[in-house]
């Protein structure tokens, strides 16, 4: 197969509520796959299962033919999966730079003594990588600003940068352009496109903005009420009768 991520017959129940039911999705190395669907259709739940925040009730998730189930989120990140959140989960009281440096955390050679004695070789090495990302995302003016003081559009970029700082092979983006102005949306779309081109990162993306989603994605998957209802090229999926029914009703 050679698929980077393979989600097989995934089900997730919360008590009596079924969030996902037998969902199978596979993402090939180098492609961009978009997951669409109305609110509450299980897109974010799918992300949470892949990143280890939720434990699925049944089914499997394999990354590079290795099961990620039962691993903690930090261990999954170490395998090479990074993500952003729909409702931003940033470290609000840290500077933009420090947020990115947390993204570098797993690449640090950790030695408690160097931390106590202020040996800063590692800091400087990782700072260099963070500066590359800062430059890529045009974050230079806010490098030292507290994240909480930054406007929403900048915060979205910081979160993207933090995910990039972990040097993932697979990047999960949860609604990367929601709440942005038209201009910012176009910029973000450009960056997401560039992430694939420049860093060679595979992207799995949840998006409500179908225009942006179909521009970026090679393939598209549609979910509704936790069930996969369509899969194919963006044009195919958007014309699919089930998808139209899910969005517009009967």
């Amino acid at each position: 197969m050679g698929d980077l991520l393979e989600v097989r017959d995934l089900s997730l129940n919360f008590g009596g509520i079924t969030a996902l039911q037998d969902v199978s999705v596979s993402v090939a190395e180098g492609e961009t796959l978009a997951v669409i669907g109305p609110n509450g259709s299980g897109k974010t739940s799918l992300f949470n299962c892949v990143t280890g925040i939720y434990r699925p009730t049944a089914g499997g998730v394999a990354f590079r033919s290795e099961s990620v189930l039962g691993r903690t989120p930090d261990a999954i990140t170490r395998l090479g999966i990074a993500r952003t959140f729909q409702n931003l989960r940033l470290f609000h009281n840290m500077s933009v730079l420090d947020n990115l440096m947390v993204g570098r955390h797993l690449h640090f050679r950790k030695n408690f003594l160097t931390a106590l004695l202020r040996a800063r070789g590692e800091e400087i090495r990782h700072r260099r990588r963070c500066e590359e990302i800062i430059e890529f995302l045009n974050l230079e003016p806010v490098r030292k600003s507290r994240v909480a003081d930054c406007p929403y559009g900048v915060q979205k970029r910081v979160e993207l940068g933090r995910a990039l700082a972990t040097e993932p092979r697979l990047l999960l983006l949860d609604e990367p352009v929601s709440g942005l102005t038209q201009e910012e949306k176009d910029e973000s779309a450009y960056w997401i496109h560039e992430i694939r081109g420049r860093f060679g990162i595979t992207v799995l993306l949840v998006e409500h903005d179908l225009r942006v989603a179909s521009r970026l994605a090679d393939r598209m998957v549609a979910l509704d009420h936790g069930v996969k209802i369509a899969e194919g090229t963006p044009a195919e999926v958007q014309r699919h009768p089930e998808v139209i029914k899910a969005y517009l009703g009967e």
């Binding site: 903690t72 930090d74 990140t77 170490r78 990074a82 989960r89 940033l90 470290f91």
Partner: peptide
């Protein structure tokens, strides 16, 4: 500031 985000960024809680 955000424990879930910390975990997802590779910090072992």
């Amino acid at each position: 500031d955000a424990d879930i985000a910390a975990e997802v960024n590779g910090v072992n809680l």
